[in-house]
């Protein structure tokens, strides 16, 4: 991992106005590094969905992105309520989003499926009352 570039970001609870900033920044950096456009798009989509979930369902947290010549690994660690039933949460259309967040256009229950679809691997570690860590890898 000697060639790894590591980026770290804080995601702030309830900051709807800023949701997407981390993903935009990562997208920009990957483009600068010359990563192919289709890979950049996949990473951007997966990161955005994960970032928004940290803002609307969890209490914010930290995002780490590791870039090597082989892959891009995203680690999204939040300090939210955890996910009681991961299998159910992964189903397309399942959502516990509040009316307020639905009014903003969230709540289709497609975020986690989009993350899965756009990455080569996705792992969810979650503990009720403690938080959730999602690790996703996109291979270059």
């Amino acid at each position: 991992m000697e060639d790894a570039i590591v980026l770290k970001y804080q995601v702030i609870d309830g900051e709807f106005q800023r949701a997407g900033e981390v993903s935009s920044d990562v997208k920009h950096k990957l483009k600068q590094l010359g990563v192919p456009a289709d890979i950049v798009r996949k990473v951007a989509i997966a990161m955005y969905e994960g970032e928004v979930n940290m803002v609307i369902h969890a209490n914010g947290g930290e995002i780490t992105v590791e870039i090597t010549p082989e892959q891009i690994r995203m680690i999204l660690a939040d300090v939210g309520p955890g996910i009681p039933d991961v299998e159910k949460a992964m189903q397309a259309g399942y959502s516990t989003a509040s009316d307020a967040t639905r009014n903003l256009g969230f709540g289709a229950g497609m975020g986690l499926p989009n993350m899965k679809k756009n990455t080569d691997s996705m792992d969810i570690e979650t503990k009720l009352g403690e938080g959730t860590t999602i690790t996703m890898v996109v291979r270059l």
Partner: peptide
Amino acid sequence: AGCAWVTVMGNINTLAVATLA
């Protein structure tokens, strides 16, 4: 990518999605 996206949602998240997608 490269679409014309027609929507009634005019908040900041629309712009984030438009940019990222």
